[in-house]
Design a binder for these strands. Structure first.
Lengths: 206, 206
DNA sequence: GTCTATACCATGATAGAC
DNA sequence: GTCTATCATGGTATAGAC
């Protein structure tokens, strides 16, 4: 998966932030989890912890940005697609012992008021998801405004349900959120169109 | 507002956790914000930082648990009530410069995998919200299962939209989430019944 | 590019005078 | 019950040998 030292540091950091957020992750932990000694972290990332976090979040953000279109792809009814996507998320979460699937929201909630660089980074990732998702739904036949509202509601409901599910150790919040959102969209057709969404998230790894 | 030293410590801690989460809040900061010296924190809370966090979260959780019923109270159409509640949340958030309204979700996301005592505390708070909210909606005429699903979807959508709104510094996620959830419930009547929901959150200040 | 040793600082927590 | 001084620890980051 991650071959170079640089990559293994980033994946280790993303993994740790996924379950601990930002402040509670120590450089020592990243070093141990990646197998690289502390000095190597600062060799590859002169910007220190902040730079590692930003790059790790952007990487994870791009990966998760593909997720919603991927889950929607096999369906041609919007309501069915939404419910299936949340059902899949619930299965994944239960299978991983209720570890959060994505570090972006945790770090965003923790640092939006205190670490401007991380707020900007997470905001860029969210914006990429929303723009990419809206483009995707438009490419499958939805009206521009409907596509935008749908992806905003979807991402918000998903992130909120994740927090509840993780804390309560239950899939109920994900399943209920999926049903609630699906109810408003049953019978809406998704046209077949294999266009991939763009990922214009990357503006943090400079 | 908070007169005793104990109370001022708890409100200061809740305020700090609201914007920084748990790990990034230092006891020194709580002391400074509350006006009490460090020694007093440990005098009133022998359990240290963890005890302060738990009690502060429970206090904040009870307060926020009142919020949804309060916002729903003046309406008699469920769809209208939902949209108004999210609109009110959006206004409050914009008015406070996009500071998160509630420390529970931030701390829950950050500590669900790492600090068992805080996961239990936040889970208890969430459970109180869900049980209390379901009771409230039942008291206003909804079927038991519908009431439960509604409050789960509502709390999840609200928490997720908060994270997005705070990070993007925009009210759009709250407004869109409110509209999306309201759409499935327009025309559903809320019966007039002035019963207050129970708060059975408290099991952490032992 | 890898790795160790270490500087320097902030942290949670305590002891004990008042 | 209030407040100060301080401890031990763990944090980020750096220096410099290899």
């Amino acid at each position: 998966m991650a071959r170079s030292t640089r990559e293994s540091i980033l994946t280790a950091a993303a993994e740790l932030m996924r379950s601990r957020g930002y402040a509670a992750v120590a450089m020592k932990d990243v070093a141990a989890a990646s197998g690289a000694p502390i000095g190597s972290l600062y060799h590859h990332f002169p910007g220190g912890k902040l730079q590692i976090a930003r790059e790790a979040l952007v990487n994870a953000g791009v990966a998760y940005g593909q997720l919603i279109p991927t889950l929607m792809a096999p369906h041609d009814d919007l309501g069915v697609a939404i419910e299936a996507a949340f059902g899949q998320a619930a299965e994944d979460m239960a299978a991983t012992g209720f570890a959060n699937m994505c570090p972006v929201a945790s770090v965003a909630a923790e640092t939006a008021d205190t670490v401007p660089e991380l707020r900007e980074t997470t905001a860029g990732i969210f914006t990429g998801w929303l723009d990419g998702g809206a483009d995707y739904f438009r490419s499958r036949g939805l009206a521009p405004d409907a596509a935008r509202d749908l992806i905003v509601a979807l991402v918000g409901a998903l992130e909120g349900a994740f927090v509840l599910a993780r804390t309560l150790r239950s899939t109920e919040p994900l399943l209920v959120a999926g049903r609630a959102l699906a109810d408003g969209h049953r019978g809406v057709p998704l046209t077949a169109q294999p266009r991939l969404p763009l990922d214009d998230v990357a503006n943090a790894s400079s």
